[in-house]
Design a protein around this nucleic acid. Structure first.
Lengths: 165, 165
DNA sequence: GTTATTGCAAATGATTTGCACAAGG
DNA sequence: CCTTGTGCAAATCATTTGCAATAAC
């Protein structure tokens, strides 16, 4: 876990008079063990392997704390569950490309884009706070080569690729 | 209701062997009676005033049909319910500015923006299918004048302005 | 008459919450 | 000890679905 994250977390814990519990330790270290997006349920499964106790409720409650502490971001990829992004302290990107073939998510940022939208927002009489662009796209690779590594991986892991409806 | 909408709907009904029922007539005419966004529940309430029978289930099922027919678009404004947009045949905008003070939603389109994102998507190795930009912003009017007509209206109508969580 | 449609109530599924018990400081 | 945190099960809430009754065509 990054030192900045650790420091911010410590500050948050003492400022709010929170307590350090075994469950939180496990959840937090699991959250920041990778840079990848995850759902509450995926995290719950990961946490279970290290700490067989720890309830779903605690996972949800801890996620809420981390979001409140500004260490984790909730993003909405258009499916039925909230996605969490543990890796944004150093990159303020809120733009996502979601591949509708394989479910792969690419995060990116673009200064030109930010400028453009900020101008437009002001022109409409508002002050921009945050923005998120979601691009749904298909794999060139899948179309050209007939296969896509991400698709195969996604199927193997039983990932739900589209909205159920 | 627009003639194009009517024609497309007729075509869809016959192509799929659907039936014309009183409930559908009411729901469809209510959907296209205004250009504004609405939630399933708001529509259900509106429909109730004309046709006191008509269940929620039928409203949901009819919304699904209209989306399948390409006459209605589902959009995700980040709250807990799906928003529907009845007015997009003539304007292919999928970009929304949501005012976090008053909940007002402004739709807009911008060719420069579309170009920019399409380029970026291709550069990343994907083919863009659709995109949506959501900007959350605050009212200049509220900040400068201390009040905002939309906010007052929203409060009067009991609209939920933010995510409940 | 078939087959699509409806209303109702029950099912879903992610997330939240009330509560009694457990544990940090 | 005094609060905060936890697990559990029950509650939410938008949306979906099974089913028997009903209505198009």
């Amino acid at each position: 876990m990054d030192a900045t994250v650790q420091a911010r977390l410590d500050e948050f814990i003492s400022r709010r008079g929170l307590r350090r519990t075994a469950q939180r330790e496990v959840i937090v270290s699991e959250v920041f063990s990778k840079d990848e997006h995850f759902s509450a349920d995926e995290l719950f499964e990961r946490v279970r392997t290290s700490a067989a106790n720890t309830s779903r409720a605690t996972v949800y409650r801890t996620l809420g704390l981390l979001v409140a502490a500004g260490l984790l971001r909730e993003i909405d990829l258009g499916d039925e569950q909230t996605t969490y992004d543990p890796n944004f302290l150093d990159k303020p990107a809120h733009n996502h490309l979601v591949c509708i073939d394989c479910g792969r998510v690419v995060e990116f940022e673009d200064a030109q884009l930010e400028n453009l939208t900020a101008c437009m927002t002001r022109r409409l009489g508002f002050e921009p706070i945050r923005q998120s662009l979601k691009i749904e796209a298909t794999c060139e690779q899948l179309r050209n080569q007939g296969r896509c590594a991400n698709l195969i991986a996604a199927r193997l892991s039983g990932k739900r690729l589209r909205k159920k409806r």
